[in-house]
Design a protein around this nucleic acid. Structure first.
Length: 263
DNA sequence: ATGTCCACTAGGAGTGGA
């Protein structure tokens, strides 16, 4: 089973690029973030033509998440309880059947903007709500994945310049504590399971040639329960899809992909 | 160079968000 997460930065602007990736990489289950469209604007037919069923939780202009699956897909819930006013940022479904079924959630976590902005304390509170919510169903012996754009750089290894950025947004102790508390309910970072010491990024600013200067952050994660880690065969950040494809503009995020054993 | 890109409002180019 090939699973993936990708912040597409606007699905209408990215549709042809995303379809190219789906056709080439053929993931079984994908979480998308930053759709920037309403549910009625979601291009279901384009994805059905590639073999995917989709569940969406969108809104006008901003945020928005979706799950695409080639496997049977059953909705569980949409929206983080108590946090609806902070945007459409969470969707959860059961994918697959029998012992290979996966409890799959994708998240677009708040950005926070900067430490003086009102969104920053709201971001911390949102993560506390997320931890409490996850605690309600995460179990070590059941396969569950939480994936998405976390908008937190978990450790200095995940930043292109901890020296310059320590203490600034994405790099604060308060954010890192909230992220660590989420993992403490029983989730592991699948990328770090396989690459414990590799400096690698999943996001690069569009400005200033950041991608080519290797100035990025690792903020897009696939988190899994121990039952998922036991099934983990490989994981990679798909940097090829942070590059332009002909005339098609990439997202500022790369997809993150993992392969799990069937059971 | 805070240097790009997306969506919105508007019916062209500026604004807000990331």
């Amino acid at each position: 089973m090939r699973i993936a997460t990708w912040n597409v930065n606007g699905l209408r602007a990215r549709l042809d690029f995303v379809k190219h990736w789906l056709a080439e990489r053929a993931p079984d289950v994908v979480g998308f973030q930053e759709l920037k469209l309403t549910d009625d604007q979601f291009p279901h037919a384009d994805f059905e033509a590639l073999g995917y069923r989709c569940l969406t939780h969108g809104q006008k202009s901003w945020n928005g998440v979706a799950i695409l699956s080639k496997l049977p897909l059953e909705p569980i819930e949409a929206g983080l309880p108590g946090q609806a006013e902070f945007g459409a940022r969470l969707i959860r479904a059961r994918v697959g059947e029998g012992p290979r079924a996966l409890d799959f959630t994708t998240l677009y976590c708040p950005n926070g903007k900067d430490l003086d902005h009102e969104d920053y304390p709201r971001k911390l509170a949102w993560f506390e709500a997320l931890r409490g919510w996850a605690e309600g169903f995460v179990r070590a012996d059941e396969s569950a994945v939480l994936c998405g754009d976390f908008n937190i750089v978990p450790t200095p290894l995940d930043s292109w310049s901890e020296e310059e950025l320590a203490g600034s947004i994405f790099h604060t102790d308060a954010e890192r504590e909230r992220y660590a508390a989420l993992l403490a309910v029983g989730l592991r970072d699948l990328y770090r399971e396989r690459e414990p010491a590799t400096k690698a990024f999943s996001w690069w600013d569009y400005r200033g040639g950041a991608f080519h200067r290797r100035q990025g952050l690792r903020i897009d994660m696939l988190l899994g329960t121990p039952a998922v880690v036991a099934r983990l065969r490989s994981v990679e950040i798909d940097r090829e899809y942070r590059k332009k494809k002909g005339e098609l503009t990439p997202s500022d995020h790369a997809p993150v992909v993992a392969v799990l054993d069937a059971e």
